[in-house]
Nucleic acid binder design. Sequence first.
DNA 1: TTACTAACGTACTAGTTCGTACATTAACGT
DNA 2: ACGTTAATGTACGAACTAGTACGTTAGTAA
Lengths: 220, 220
Amino acid sequence: MQDPAPPAVRGPGRARDAARTRAEIIEVATREFAEQGYTGARVDRIAERTRTTKRMIYYYFGGKEGLYVAVLEHAYAGIRQSERDLDLTGLRPIEAMRRLAELTYDHHVAHPEFIRLVSIENIHRAEHLASSETLRNLNMPVTDLIAGLLADGRADGTVRADADPLDVHMVISAYCVFAVANRHTFDALFGRDLLDPARRGHYRTLVGDLVVRYLTPTGP
Amino acid sequence: MQDPAPPAVRGPGRARDAARTRAEIIEVATREFAEQGYTGARVDRIAERTRTTKRMIYYYFGGKEGLYVAVLEHAYAGIRQSERDLDLTGLRPIEAMRRLAELTYDHHVAHPEFIRLVSIENIHRAEHLASSETLRNLNMPVTDLIAGLLADGRADGTVRADADPLDVHMVISAYCVFAVANRHTFDALFGRDLLDPARRGHYRTLVGDLVVRYLTPTGP
DNA sequence: TTACTAACGTACTAGTTCGTACATTAACGT
DNA sequence: ACGTTAATGTACGAACTAGTACGTTAGTAA
């Protein structure tokens, strides 16, 4: 953003910038794949919307599938980073968990494109995710974060002893992913838009409550 | 199943049975669309796997899109029916809710194909669902069931007063849909198969707990 | 029997879509 | 300057894919 923008032209004479071209292709492809699915996405359409040509997609990514994998890798790198940026300092474990659930909700709502990519990848049984070295080695910092909070909470008795970090993460993900991913069928069937801005607060609070109630130890 | 099976042949001379042909196309198409997505599905492939020809798909359904809508309608008619078959008699409201959550989990796990269709339809922003008269008029009996249970529970003080039926349904759906729909990416990223038979009981119990804890009124 | 029509089959086409062969140019080190 | 190569552009093709024109046959009613 801070570098002097090269002339936004195509054709002979345009300045060469591999990194920029590559990044632009990824950005446009992310939208196309998220909108249309893997099979529905069109290589020609992606090329059209770029300041370069289809030839470059094959030059940099080898083909449609390579481009799709690059898009996935880029997208996952994004959330992993935002998971690292989470700041829950100064909160007691149970309240940190509530906050984590609420922030996760906000993050998912703010990035529907990513959720769509995940849905699409699941339709394809995560075969691209599984075949990418980069993606296989991706660790998700949030699980360690949750594990730490649960351990602290168990130590001071504010969190039930039998709560599993990955289960808790699954519950949070399930709720947040569903609200975004299944928004359309839910709205069509029940007449309620899960992403209606007027209801955001309600649904944010709901997932927080859900998690806190699940984690709170039952009476003596 | 109980009628004498017509000869399983194709070509001139085969017995004619419109209903049977139609049903067979829907069945094969359901698999194809669920496996490949709408765009990835191939009309020719569906025809191949049927005892009839592609011509019949156009004869009965008008085209790929019409067939897809017919598949959706058939699939949704299925769950609506199984929602009607739910039997929760003899249980107190809160325990009936627990049971409902657990049965929903079992049902979703048993019908991954349907969950995939729903995911696919969401990728397409539920435009087919919204454009089908049949599907728009589809009522989902489970929401009334939940509303009744919550009302009963409120009456005898076993369910918190501010619980909304559709929210509760959303929470249950989110959990159950996620376990099936996002199974592959979750497994690839966290190394845990959410549908591992050895963990079914655990995850069934978890969603029951989640709902019960959410619905239980807080302290005195 | 015969006329009629719903049900079915074959062969083809127009358009699309991924991918590539081949040509060209800008940057960079020496 | 100049040669090398990374980066880019153009034009095209082979395969696929939804959809259709046209012909045929089985059941049925009179």
